[in-house]
Structure formats: structure tokens, C-alpha cells
Design a protein around this nucleic acid. Structure first.
Lengths: 209, 209
DNA sequence: GTCTATACTGTGATAGAC
DNA sequence: GTCTATCACAGTATAGAC
């Protein structure tokens, strides 16, 4: 009994250690800034010496890479939770999706810089870590396609619009709501450009708050 | 004769040296990446030792700061040159302004990162270097105000929209035109939201190419 | 004032003992 | 796997030549 092979046990141990390192890395990144993260700080937080991290990650960039994958997988899960709550009325759905992305992007600067900007010199996510990001955009397209007739260019414009607002929020009014206030208006503008029907008036037709 | 005081001569020399350092810094930033710029590389390019740069700039951040000011002053001059060519027809003018900014932003990654992103850890532009950036936005607002009735929020939305497209261009299709192609459409969408009159048809009514 | 020489501290990364 | 020791390179402080 308990015939779990030792190799799996070791893999588990390994995964636990890696998870602890990544959690420490997130904490340090949030406290010191993403680009100011140092291996010595991460190592100290998990009770190691800096070189020991190389037993678990090939380089500092590999840690960033794993964090990048985590962040997008995390947002993919947010989209999972959102899916059943998405209204069928197109404008309301677009607004809710935009608000969800915006809230995620403005909740954590380090995460936003890693996911959506190129803050780390010479860091490019690996294909494996980039996959969840691709998946999120693909699902966005599917959702939008389900609501309305839409082209790839339409999706690009939507992404640039909502992403531009999130970037501007961090750059010009961090912690405030100067650009958050413009979100619904931006989506209405976008929906008008796609000639979507206006949201019908009525007690239950408004988007979720 | 030639009674120029020596102090002015020295100031000139000083300015020349500073300009040479900044020009070298731009070259290195474009070649190696903005954040990978090192003082030793900059110094080598102007025939100095790295510590000698401290005779002209208080720190590496001070060099970035001067570059930041240069970049925005440079764009302010672009706006100067644009001003007499701006059509009075609102949509065409908005398009030309958007294209001008987009072209400037996508012409030089290092410059764009310095001007519009927060790529350098712990670097915040000084009030003096930030002034030209403020001036550019103020002039944008004046130009738009001259064309149409507009609020601060309208300007914010315009900036986020055009900036979002430029960021997306660098992030997802550097060197390509995937988002550049969406520029005119984005401005039309924005103009529709402001209920601007449609561009009148006619041989001379189209925006400048 | 401007520059060089030297050196201090902190970084990511590697080698090898245990 | 984790350690210690060490390396190459970074920004930058200081001292002193000119």
C-alpha cells in the first residue's frame, strides 16, 4: 500500500519548492518593483542562498517566465468564472469583459507590467508560458463572436482600447479612477462603431454592477 | 575684442560635452535596449572613462532624465511643424494628429519606452524634464478645443486610444502595421462618439496623406 | 572643472564540496 | 539539493593629476 513511486514523491517536493520560490518572487516583485527583484531577496524569503535557486530555475528570466505563465493562467481562470455570468446582451457583455480585464490589470502593477508590458530587458516569454495568453485572447474572440459578427481587426481594436485605458491608468493616475471612469463610455463608443443594437431599457437589462 | 567671458565659453564647452554624452546614450539605448544601457558603454563612445560622466550628470538616472526631456521637446517640435498643416475639418485634423503621434511612437522603441512607459526601475522624470510632456498634452487639448467642443475626459480617451494602439503595435507586431491599419478607424469611432460632423465629400476635403 | 585610477557594493551566474 | 567561494559586470564614491 501507499505504493506511490519515489520519483513522483520527488516531483511533488520539487513542485512545492518551485511554488514557494514563485510565491516569494511575487511578494518581492510587489514590494520592490518587478524589475528590482533580486535573486538574493527571493532566496532569503524561502530560506535559501541565492545560488540554490538554480536547482529549480535555470535563470532569473526562467523565474519571470514561470510568473508570466502563472499570471495569464490566473486570468484565464477569472474568465472561467466570468463565463456563466456573461449577459447575452452584447453591450452589457462587452462592458463586463472590459471591466473584468481592467480590474485585473489595475489590481497589481508588477503583474500588469509582466503580462502586458516589456519591463524586463531581454525577457521574452517562452512558447509554453505564452500559451495561456494566447488562449485568453482566443477565448475573448470566441466570446465576442458568439455575441456579434466580428473580425480579427475588431478584436485587435477592442484589446488596444481596453489595454490603452489600463496602461494610462497606471501611468497617469495610479490608484485613482480617472481612466476607469471612461471604461463604459469607451465600450459604448466601440459598440456603436460595430453598429450593435442599443441595450434595451428595462429593470433587468442593465449590465451587472 | 572677442570679449566673450570665459565662463560662457566654459558653459558652451559644458553643453557640447553634455550633448555628446546624450547622443552617445541614445545610440547605445537604440542598439542595446534602453534598460541595458551602461555608463561604461556610453563613456567609451565619447572617449571617456565611466566615472568621468559624473562631471556632467549626477547619476545614470540624470542621463535618462535629460533624455526624457529631449524626447518630449523633440515631439513638441514635431507638433510645431504640424500646426500650420492641420486641416480645419475636425475629423481630418484628429486623424493627422493621431498618425503623427503614432509614427513618432513607433519609430524608436527606446524613445517610446522612455517617453510613454515605465521601463527603468525607480526612474521618475524630474519636474523640469516632465514640463515638455505636459506642454504637449496642453497643446493637444488646445488644438482639439479649437476644432470642437471638448472636455478633459474626451482628451483622456483620445490619448488612451491612440497610445493603446501604439503600445499594442510594439507589443504584438513590432515593425509591422497590424495596429497602424486601425488608426483611422479608431479616430472615426472616436469622432462618431463626439458626434462630429462627417468629413464632407470633395476633392480637397480628404485628410492629408 | 574635467578627467583618470582605484575601489566598494551589489548583481546574476558558475564550480565544486558535501 | 544546498551550500561556500568566486567571477564578471554593474553603478558610483573618492582621491588626486592636470
Amino acid at each position: 500500500m501507499l505504493g506511490t513511486p519515489i520519483t513522483i514523491w520527488q516531483d511533488k517536493r520539487r513542485e512545492v519548492a518551485q511554488a514557494a520560490i514563485l510565491e516569494a518572487a511575487w511578494t518581492v516583485a510587489r514590494e520592490q518593483g518587478l524589475a528590482s527583484l533580486t535573486l538574493r531577496q527571493v532566496a532569503a524569503r524561502v530560506g535559501m542562498q541565492a545560488p540554490s535557486l538554480y536547482s529549480h530555475f535555470a535563470s532569473k528570466h526562467a523565474i519571470y517566465d514561470a510568473m508570466f505563465g502563472q499570471a495569464w493562467r490566473s486570468y484565464d481562470e477569472v474568465v472561467d468564472a466570468l463565463e456563466p455570468r456573461l449577459p447575452s446582451e452584447p453591450r452589457s457583455a462587452l462592458k463586463l469583459m472590459a471591466r473584468t480585464f481592467f480590474a485585473f490589470a489595475t489590481a497589481d502593477l508588477a503583474r500588469h507590467q509582466l503580462m502586458n508590458q516589456r519591463v524586463i530587458p531581454d525577457f521574452t516569454p517562452s512558447a509554453e508560458s505564452y500559451a495561456p495568453a494566447v488562449r485568453v485572447v482566443a477565448r475573448l474572440r470566441e466570446h465576442m463572436q458568439r455575441l456579434i459578427e466580428i473580425t480579427d481587426e475588431d478584436v485587435d481594436l477592442y484589446v488596444a482600447l481596453v489595454g490603452g485605458l489600463a496602461d494610462a491608468q497606471w501611468a497617469n493616475d495610479p490608484g485613482g479612477s480617472r481612466y476607469a471612469r471612461l471604461l463604459d463610455r469607451a465600450v459604448e463608443m466601440y459598440a456603436d462603431a460595430l453598429a450593435l443594437p442599443a441595450t434595451p431599457a428595462g429593470p433587468d437589462s442593465q449590465e451587472a454592477r
